[in-house]
Design a protein around this nucleic acid. Structure first.
Lengths: 223, 223
DNA sequence: CGGTAATCTAGAACAAGTTTCAGACTTGAT
DNA sequence: ATCAAGTCTGAAACTTGTTCTAGATTACCG
């Protein structure tokens, strides 16, 4: 009772595919379609950014019918967020190979983020597309966006070298993510220079020192 | 050589109307139209948020032709950002009347932001529309967004009670704005609770203490 | 193999932001 | 009062995201 296996993403239903390795059973051909779509998406985004990723073009580039594209990714934002997950995973792999070398956690986090930032600078249009998608998100994309956020958290905690962060440290990480995210936006929209983004990142990373056991007043604890 | 005075916003031309009190000469009727439009925008936004602000409806509600609406505000995002400027100015006025009462600058800033946050909670849909517009912005809206950012900076500096902030303090304020902005987004998209936003704000406000003259290492200085 | 249910395709249709246009209306100067 | 230039209106057109439909294809079960 089925054709090309199961539905890849049931569109209107939430709670589907929350974790990344838990890919619901996909046919080879379906997996290939999915890759083609994500590839086309990244390709188009690398050119003109968010606006250049037009669903009809993505469909055509990836040799898939428009309706199929929408079955795999229920909206343009879903598609771009998935594209971002892809890129993030790739970047995490790269970062793991060459861990940051700073002496303090704050330095290592700042270095990691700056490395990521330099990677984004090489593909500013792609960065634009992904970041715009992330922030423009409506509630229906929350699970996916949340996943991106968790992945970012993991990357930062990795850089800090922590296995078991305290609540205060988690708060600091949250604030760092906020800053990272928002600073990117100001850079992408031309309202902040690269130098300013660097300063902002370094500034916020000082928060980490505040949470270092052995330092002064610990931050308030989330209940 | 003109009809209802000058053009209210020349659409395709940048560098027009950068400062707020420098309203290019507007007829009474034009001023009235502008108000009607902004009012309709806020009204519709208060209902369904970003999506509910439909240009055709705004035009109809404010008794203005669609083309005219676009002459005043060259895009939906411009319109919503202008709406936000309006609301911000209003809020700034309110805040001035009852300044925050905390002992430290960090406390006063946190209190101010939480007050603003509570105001937004009263109109979550409006908040959604304004914040989404702010972040979805493409470069053509940068000047207006920048203006909103400057206004926010003023509000925060007010709360700190500073006339002449150091560069380090300005950096801290920038990071606070980033956090404020991004935390709002996570709240609006349902990925963070009100309590979490509060914690994030309080966490980032600790940065201010770091820049207090008399404390330890000053932050790096923007050139 | 044959049946069948789900998937995929092509293409039309719809929705909302944006643009365009012809004609009516205002304004300010003469 | 008249005129020229700019503005406003109403309506249609265009663009791109999204939905829908009918029919061809595919996967898998028995």
């Amino acid at each position: 009772m089925s054709a090309e296996a199961k539905t890849p993403a049931k569109a209107a239903q939430p709670a589907v595919r929350a974790a990344q390795p838990v890919t619901p059973p996909l046919t080879e051909r379906q997996e290939a379609r999915r890759r083609r779509i994500l590839h086309a998406s990244a390709q188009l985004a690398s050119r003109g950014g968010f606006d250049a990723v037009q669903m009809r073009e993505v469909a055509e580039s990836s040799q898939v019918a428009l309706g199929t594209l929408y079955r795999y990714f229920p909206s343009k934002v879903h598609l771009l967020v998935a594209t971002m997950q892809d890129q993030l995973a790739h970047m995490h792999g790269t970062l793991r190979k060459k861990p940051p070398a700073g002496d303090t956690a704050a330095e290592r986090v700042a270095e990691t983020l700056m490395r990521a930032f330099r990677a984004l600078q090489r593909e500013p249009h792609l960065a634009d597309a992904m970041v715009r998608a992330l922030t423009f998100t409506d509630r229906s994309v929350s699970p996916e966006v949340d996943q991106v956020s968790r992945q970012t958290t993991v990357i930062i905690l990795d850089a800090m070298g922590l296995d078991d962060p305290t609540p205060a440290q988690l708060s600091a990480v949250r604030v760092i993510e906020h800053t990272w995210h928002s600073a990117l936006i100001t850079w992408l929209s031309g309202r902040a220079s690269i130098a300013q983004v660097k300063i902002d990142i370094e500034t916020v990373c000082r928060l980490i020192d505040l949470t270092d056991p052995g330092q002064g007043a610990p931050l308030e604890v989330p209940r």
